[in-house]
Write a protein that binds this DNA or RNA. Sequence first.
DNA 1: GATGATCTCTGACTAAGGTCAGAGATTGTG
DNA 2: CACAATCTCTGACCTTAGTCAGAGATCATC
Lengths: 281, 281
Amino acid sequence: MRRFNRFYTRHIGVLTDRYLGQSRPLGEARLLYEIGSGTTDLRELRGRLDLDSGYLTRLLRGLGDDRLVEVTPDPADARARRATLTAAGRREVAEMNRRATGVADDLLSGLAEAQRGELVAALGRAERLLRLGAVRVEQADPAAPAARRCLTAYANELRDRFPEGFADDDLVDPAQAAVFLVAHESGTPVGCAAVRPLDARTGELRHLWVHADARGIGLGRRLLAETERHAADKGLTRLRLGTHEALGEAVALYRSAGYRATKPYGDTAHTHHWFTKRISP
Amino acid sequence: MRRFNRFYTRHIGVLTDRYLGQSRPLGEARLLYEIGSGTTDLRELRGRLDLDSGYLTRLLRGLGDDRLVEVTPDPADARARRATLTAAGRREVAEMNRRATGVADDLLSGLAEAQRGELVAALGRAERLLRLGAVRVEQADPAAPAARRCLTAYANELRDRFPEGFADDDLVDPAQAAVFLVAHESGTPVGCAAVRPLDARTGELRHLWVHADARGIGLGRRLLAETERHAADKGLTRLRLGTHEALGEAVALYRSAGYRATKPYGDTAHTHHWFTKRISP
DNA sequence: GATGATCTCTGACTAAGGTCAGAGATTGTG
DNA sequence: CACAATCTCTGACCTTAGTCAGAGATCATC
């Protein structure tokens, strides 16, 4: 892993830094890139690139002098300002993209077709695993803002996916949760899971949710495993759960994680499949 | 591929830059790292890190002031100087290594055992393919320095591996080569291959060699394929070759690349296996 | 309408990274 | 031995990157 990092920064990183920094300093180039096609608040740019506000102003003025960027007041808030690429700015970004593609094409040109596919697959696999590894999964207060945001997003998604709709008050009462986990990816919450106690030995898994941007990296499975571990630590020996037929990928996940179909045990609203699994610490 | 690069520099690169740059500026840290355990010529450091000579001097003085590095005259050449880590310097590098390992462990801690293995495998696969892609394979004058260096290394290796030894004059006369390819990895020659014409339609593949540091990335196979292409372009329709029984991996490569055993066709010195293959442009 | 918070901008400053043109010592070569 | 080449070092200089403390305008709230 360290070997790869040294290799990568040494060989590929240098290449890409060079293409990006070719026409202008890296800071300006990254900023141009980040403004992108649309119009972006300075506040957001500052957050995304982690820039000092004074520094950002100066960078933008530099780009503005070259007529690549225009900074205009935010119509909704006269304190705030927004940055937009001019036509010349968009051309510059396109040129940067062309160069980046050139570097990549150059590397790929030495590989046979099958190897290119392999490379793309290996990089994709590595990216997903690195992302999954970088996610922090932690016990959280279900009433905390990050947890609320997850539950709201979860409820909104169910509202979209369930033909019959979904109401916020179908969420479990936070105070009832025996376990509540929130997953964070570089600071932003991207998933959650809760366990509500049914009796002294049995819990009900609820609200297992993964942000759309974080799907496919194995986070659902990881949340499930960590939830089981926490539940077992709390003395529970069995988890039950019910799920909606519209959530096919969830059903598949539960099956492959060792959950077995069982008969309904509680409220049947929104629920078509019932599962249970014995757990141990 | 570009996606991966953006992800990687953004998330992993930032992490590693941070740990490296923690105790001292990145430039100094990289330099410490590069000096490493042994004693290193300043010339070589300059080349490897692509530093201005004045800049290098200053960096080294900075490290020298902190008693991390000692710069001493090269005994063989009083113009040149060499840098060595002091005990404190080695401790500093060890500390950097510990921090790097910490970052890696942190990432891996979120993964299950099987996933760690997968990650290592994916990164290794990606590294090998990226290296292979970055190698430049080009027609070269067999008398040029890079080519000579390859042939010398090849001869030295055969001398070691053949029980009966190997003499430099067993190498094919450079002037006879119909095709001569040299592979370069970031400037240094890491492989070669030659074709000597046997008759108007037939060539003999010789001196297919890959530097020990570049083995396992698929460069032998690539050199072989490119050699066949060049030979076909020159109007050859068949390649023959003879190889020594001590070179098991070469025999395996030829077999899997479509070469079929054939009867001896020429000088039998150092040769136990004979192969032939039809080629077409 | 006063007050505190928010947002951008300016000025002053620092460190890091890097370039360039020689000077001075030494070495290889005709 | 003269001369060109090589190697390190010094001084002068520049850009990039980044920080910090306010100033000024605007907004949200009581």
